[in-house]
Amino acid sequence: MGGVVSAVSSNGVYSFTKPNRESITLLEGLEGLGVEGDVHAGVTVKHRSRVARDPSQPNLRQVHLIHEELFEEVRGAGFEVAAGQLGENVTTRGLDLLSLPVGTLLRLGDEAVVEVTGLRNPCPQIDNFQDGLLKQVVGRNADGSLRLRGGIMSVVVRGGAVRPGDPVKVELPDGPHVPLEIV
């Protein structure tokens, strides 16, 4: 099971969108750091709302990944979204990120490895980007349960460069698989 990196993005300042890059470098540190030069890199949480609640929380949101297929789905509802515009660092193709269990390892290219920690909780800023888009990313399943499609979050296990065209290899965790929840 695997896919491919279709784009990589980072931003050194707080902004909803992140510009695409030719490559990004993941930094591992003792507890992972994130994307070199990205405002969300660090051992402790960097998202403003989470910092306001408790700045000492571990940063389980170091690297944000989104499946490119989401952009095609929302295009069908009249929205134009491109890689990096929802704040993700890594855009993938051919991989059902949302179905992966907690603890899955994703090998990005030749060196970098991230561990999946959970789902991204899409925020109202998505509607500031394009009015009505939040309803496309957050919805309900047939059974009434919440459906979050804004990508997944991860921490860096092994650093390295990641580029568009790099393969993404999936290593599922041993034991019972724990479904993703919001982190």
Rank of each mutant, 00 (worst) to 15 (best):
M1K: 09
G3C: 02
V5Q: 13
A7E: 14
A7Y: 08
A7H: 15
A7W: 03
S10L: 10
S10W: 08
N11S: 14
N11T: 07
G12L: 00
V13Y: 07
V13Q: 12
V13M: 09
F16H: 14
T17R: 13
K18F: 00
K18W: 00
S23N: 08
L26N: 04
G32K: 11
G32Y: 11
L33E: 11
G34T: 06
D38S: 04
D38R: 02
H40Q: 10
H40V: 04
H40N: 15
H40C: 06
H47Q: 14
R50P: 00
S56W: 10
P58R: 14
N59G: 09
Q62H: 04
Q62P: 09
V63P: 08
V63F: 05
L65W: 12
H67Q: 14
E68W: 03
F71R: 08
V74K: 08
R75L: 14
R75D: 12
G78S: 08
E80D: 13
A82I: 00
A82P: 00
A82V: 00
A83Y: 00
A83T: 00
G84Q: 05
Q85P: 03
G87A: 11
G87W: 09
T91K: 12
R93I: 02
R93E: 15
R93L: 10
D96F: 04
S99K: 12
L100K: 09
P101N: 10
T104P: 05
T104C: 06
L105T: 00
L108F: 04
E111Q: 14
E111A: 14
A112E: 02
V113W: 03
V113C: 02
V113Y: 02
E115Q: 15
G118C: 04
I126F: 10
I126W: 01
Q130T: 01
L133S: 06
L133P: 04
K135L: 14
K135D: 11
R140F: 15
R140S: 15
D143F: 05
G144D: 09
S145N: 04
L146T: 15
L146F: 07
L146N: 01
R149K: 15
I152S: 07
M153F: 12
S154Y: 01
S154V: 02
V155L: 05
R158P: 01
R158C: 01
G159D: 01
G160Q: 05
G160D: 03
A161H: 02
V170A: 10
E171N: 03
G175H: 14
H177G: 07
V178C: 03
L180F: 05
L180P: 09
I182N: 04
I182M: 11
